[in-house]
Design a protein around this nucleic acid. Structure first.
Length: 575
RNA sequence: CGGCGAUUAGCGCAGUUUGGUAGCGCACUUGGUUUGGGUCCAAGGGGUCGCAGGUUCAAAUCCUGCAUCGCCGACCA
C-alpha cells in the first residue's frame, strides 16, 4: 500500500474525550472514528488489526475442532421470551419492531438462536458433541459506553457454543476451549491470565475469564504468588483467619463523634485506625413468604470492602443486592448511616470472618453522632452469623492453600462457561440418546471480545511515540520511508523496486510516498506502530545500503540493497 | 438512572463574567523556501457558535426548555 493512496488519518492532537491510552492512540493512529457514543467506524488500519486478531482466533478455534457459521444480528423476540431473557436481560437488550410491528432484538449474544438451530438440526446423540462458532457483530445498549472500543455498544465478538450428551463430555470440550484460548492469547503476544470467574445470572457450574493485565482494566483479579490460583476478585474466597479472637480487655464505652461519619473521618478526628473498627452496611433482606423485605446488617472490618456478589448469595440477603434507602434505615434504627454498628441492632447481622475475630473494636452506636469503643462479640452482640462477605486484599492467604494473594487489574477479553442444561431445558433442546429416549443436551459457551483485544493489546504495547504492534497484529509488517524522494533520481527507483519486491514476497508493506519531511514520516509510522521501517536515503545509498529500524527495540541494522529483500523477509517470516 | 462538566471550522481551544454580529494553533488548498526526526514565509477555502423558544434596537454571550457528548457513581450474560 502507498500512503498517497491510503487513508492514514493520523492526528497530532489527542481528541479531548479519549481517556485511556488505547483509545487515544486508536484515534491518533487513524484506526477508528466515533460515530456516536459507543459506536465506532473502523478505518483501514484499524480494520487490518481487527482482521489479524480474527485470523488467529479462527485458526485456533478450527484447530480445536470448532466449526464456523454465521447467525443473524436481528433475532425474533419469541426466542428470547422462550428462554425467559426477554424480561431478564433488561434495557441492555436493544429492541426493535419491524414494519408489521413484530418485536425483535439486536443480538447481544446468541444462546437462543444457536439452541433453536441445534434443536432443529441435531436429532441424534451420534451427531454430538459439536462445537459451533461465529465471528460477528454484537449489540448491547450499554448503560455507559466508555474507553472507545473497550466498552462499545456495537462490537466484534467470537462466540462459540458446544453441545453434549453428558457433563463429562462438556468438561472435556471446556478444557479444550480453555487450551485454545491460551493458544490464542499466546499467539497474540499478550500478558494474560485465565481466572476463576463468577457464573453470574447466566448460570452453570464452572466459568473462567481471560484477562489481559493492564492498569486501565475494569476488573480486579487476585492471584497466588505460589501457585496458578487466579480468580476475579468477585469470586476470590477470603479465608477465615486462623487466629482466635482475643478475650475482651475493655468495657463498652460510648463517645461523641458528631463530625465522624466515615471510617476516614473516625481516623482523622478520633485516631481510630481503620482495622480497629468495623463498617456496618444495611441492605435489604431476602423476601419472606409475603414478599416483604426486611433489613439486614453486613459488617466488615473498617479497612475492608464489601463483596456484593458474596453478600447477595447469602440466604438472608436479597438478590440482587440493594443498599437500604436512608429513610428505611432511619425508621428501623433511629440513626443515620455514619453512626451505625452491631450493638443492639434489631435485625439479622452478618459478620465477615475478619471482623468476627476482632476484640475491643469501634463501631457506631446506632445513635447519631455517637460511637462505641471496646465492643466485643459474644458479650455485647450475641445474635449474629459469620460469613465471607468481603473482597480479598493484597497479602491475604490464597484460597488454594499456597502462598498469598496479589491483586492486579485486568481487561476481560474472554469468558468461558459451562452452561449445563439451562438453555436446552427452557427451549426444549434434546436429542435421541442411545436408548432411544429423548435427552437434554448440555451446553458450553465461549466468548472472545475481538475488538476489545485490539484495544487491550495497545494498552500493553505503547510508548511515548505511539503503538508498538507485535508482528502478528500489526496493520503492516514493514514500512518503506524514503528520505526526500522527490529530490533524488535514484531513491524513487530503488524505493519502488524494493516496494514491489516485498509485495511479491507477500510482505504486508506500507510505502510512504508522500512528499513529506522525514520527521513527519517517522512519526506517523511510529504512531501507527509498524514493527519495521526501512529507511532509504542518499547517505547510505552511497555505500549501497539501506537501514532497517525495529519499532519495539529501537535497534537499527544496515542491509546491502541487493540482499535487503531476502534477508528482511527471512527476518519477518522467522517470527 | 443519580451527581458534575462540556457543546464555537475536520482536530485542539480562546471569546461568554461586562450583549455590538467570530478568532487562534494544527489540518486542508496554492506559491515559494527548507530537507535523515512533526521547516519557515505568504496568500486562500472552510463556522446559520448543539437545537428550540424567550429578553433586547442588537445574542456565541443573558433567561427557559430540550438534545448530544464526556467524567464519577450505580449497573453490567
Amino acid at each position: 500500500m502507498r500512503t498517497s493512496q491510503y487513508i492514514l488519518a493520523t492526528l497530532k492532537e489527542t481528541p479531548s474525550d479519549a481517556e485511556i491510552i488505547s483509545h487515544q492512540l486508536m484515534l491518533r493512529a487513524g484506526m477508528i472514528r466515533k460515530l456516536a457514543s459507543g459506536l465506532y467506524t473502523w478505518l483501514p488500519s484499524g480494520l487490518k488489526v481487527l482482521r489479524n486478531v480474527e485470523k488467529i482466533v479462527r485458526e485456533e478455534m478450527d484447530n480445536a475442532g470448532a466449526i464456523e457459521m454465521l447467525m443473524p444480528v436481528i433475532q425474533p423476540a419469541d426466542l428470547w421470551q422462550e428462554s425467559g431473557r426477554w424480561e431478564q436481560f433488561g434495557p441492555e437488550l436493544l429492541r426493535i419492531t419491524d414494519r408489521n410491528n413484530r418485536p425483535f432484538a439486536l443480538g447481544p449474544t446468541h444462546e437462543e438462536v444457536i439452541t433453536d438451530f441445534v434443536r432443529k438440526e441435531i436429532n441424534s446423540y451420534k451427531q454430538l458433541p459439536i462445537t459451533l462458532y461465529q465471528v460477528q457483530t454484537k449489540v448491547r445498549d450499554e448503560v455507559r459506553p466508555r474507553f472507545g472500543v473497550m466498552r462499545a455498544r456495537e462490537f466484534t465478538m467470537k462466540d462459540a457454543y458446544s453441545f453434549h450428551l453428558s457433563e463429562e463430555c462438556l468438561t472435556q470440550t471446556y478444557q479444550r476451549m480453555h487450551q485454545a484460548y491460551c493458544n490464542i492469547f499466546e499467539r497474540l503476544g499478550l500478558d494474560y491470565r485465565p481466572v476463576l470467574a463468577d457464573t453470574g445470572s447466566i448460570g452453570g457450574s464452572l466459568s473462567h475469564e481471560f484477562h489481559v493485565l493492564a492498569e486501565s482494566g475494569e476488573d480486579a483479579i487476585a492471584f497466588s504468588d505460589a501457585s496458578d490460583y487466579a480468580a476475579n476478585i468477585e469470586k476470590a474466597e477470603a479465608l477465615a483467619p486462623k487466629t482466635e479472637r482475643a478475650a475482651p480487655s475493655k468495657e463498652l464505652n460510648s463517645f461523641a463523634t458528631p463530625e465522624a461519619k466515615t471510617i476516614a473521618e473516625l481516623k482523622a478526628n478520633h485516631g481510630v485506625k481503620p482495622h480497629r473498627g468495623v463498617k456496618t452496611l444495611i441492605v435489604y433482606g431476602a423476601a419472606d413468604e409475603n414478599e416483604r423485605r426486611g433489613l439486614v446488617a453486613l459488617i466488615v472490618r473498617g479497612d475492608h470492602d464489601l463483596n456484593e456478589l458474596k453478600a447477595q448469595s447469602h440466604d438472608l440477603v436479597h438478590s440482587p443486592l440493594e443498599m437500604a434507602k436512608e429513610q428505611d434505615i432511619i425508621s428501623a434504627i433511629g440513626a443515620r448511616p455514619g453512626s451505625l454498628g452491631p450493638v443492639g441492632l434489631n435485625m439479622p447481622v452478618i459478620v465477615d470472618h475478619s471482623a468476627a475475630v476482632m476484640a475491643d473494636f469501634v463501631a457506631g452506636a446506632n445513635k447519631d453522632g455517637e460511637h462505641y469503643s471496646g465492643i466485643n462479640w459474644g458479650r455485647d452482640v450475641t445474635d449474629y452469623v459469620v460469613a465471607d462477605i468481603r473482597n480479598v486484599v493484597e497479602g491475604d492467604p490464597s484460597p488454594c492453600g499456597n502462598g498469598s494473594l496479589h491483586i492486579k487489574r485486568g481487561v476481560e477479553v474472554g469468558h468461558i462457561f459451562q452452561l449445563g442444561t439451562k438453555y436446552s431445558e427452557s427451549m426444549n433442546a434434546g436429542v435421541l440418546g442411545e436408548s432411544g429416549k429423548n435427552q437434554m443436551m448440555s451446553m458450553g459457551c465461549y466468548g472472545i471480545g475481538v475488538s476489545r483485544i485490539v484495544a487491550a493489546a495497545i494498552e500493553q504495547n505503547n510508548d511515548d511515540y505511539g503503538i508498538k504492534w507485535p508482528l502478528a497484529l500489526a496493520p503492516f509488517s514493514l514500512a518503506i520511508v524514503p528520505m526526500n524522494m522527490h529530490k533524488s533520481h535514484r531513491i524513487p527507483e530503488i524505493a519502488n523496486n524494493l516496494y514491489s519486491e516485498f509485495k511479491k514476497a507477500g510482505i504486508d508493506i506500507l510505502f510512504d510516498d508522500r512528499k513529506e519531511r522525514p520527521g513527519v514520516m517517522f512519526n506517523d509510522m511510529e504512531l501507527l506502530g509498524v514493527p519495521y521501517t526501512l529507511v532509504i536515503g542518499e547517505r547510505n545509498l552511497d555505500n549501497n545500503q539501506v537501514e532497517l529500524k525495529n519499532r519495539r527495540t529501537g535497534e537499527k541494522r544496515m542491509f546491502s540493497i541487493d540482499d535487503a529483500v531476502t534477508e528482511i523477509c527471512a527476518l519477518i517470516n522467522s517470527q
